[in-house]
Simulated scan of single mutants.
Amino acid sequence: MDQHVHVVTLATPDLDAARAFYAGGLGWEPLLDVPGEILFFRIAPGTVLALFEAAKFAADLGLPAPVAPAGLTLAHNVADPDGVRRLAADMAAAGGTVLTPPQDGAFGGVFHALVADPGGVVWEIAHNPGWRVDDDGTVHLG
Rank of each mutant, 00 (worst) to 15 (best):
M1D: 14
Q3R: 14
V5W: 08
V5N: 08
H6C: 03
A11H: 01
T12Y: 06
L15D: 11
A18N: 03
F21E: 00
F21N: 01
L26Q: 09
L31W: 08
V34C: 01
P35K: 03
G36V: 01
E37D: 14
I38E: 04
L39Q: 10
L39M: 12
F40D: 05
A44H: 10
P45F: 04
T47I: 15
L49I: 06
A50V: 11
L51S: 06
A54P: 01
A54L: 03
A55L: 02
K56C: 00
A58V: 08
A59N: 05
L61T: 06
A65E: 15
A65H: 15
P66F: 10
L72K: 02
L72I: 15
L74W: 08
N77Q: 07
D80R: 11
D82Y: 06
V84W: 13
R86Q: 12
L87W: 15
A88V: 09
A93H: 14
A94N: 03
V98I: 14
L99T: 13
T100D: 12
A106I: 10
V115W: 05
A116W: 05
P118Q: 10
P118I: 01
G119A: 08
G120I: 04
V122M: 07
N128K: 00
G130L: 07
R132W: 09
D135M: 01
V139Y: 11
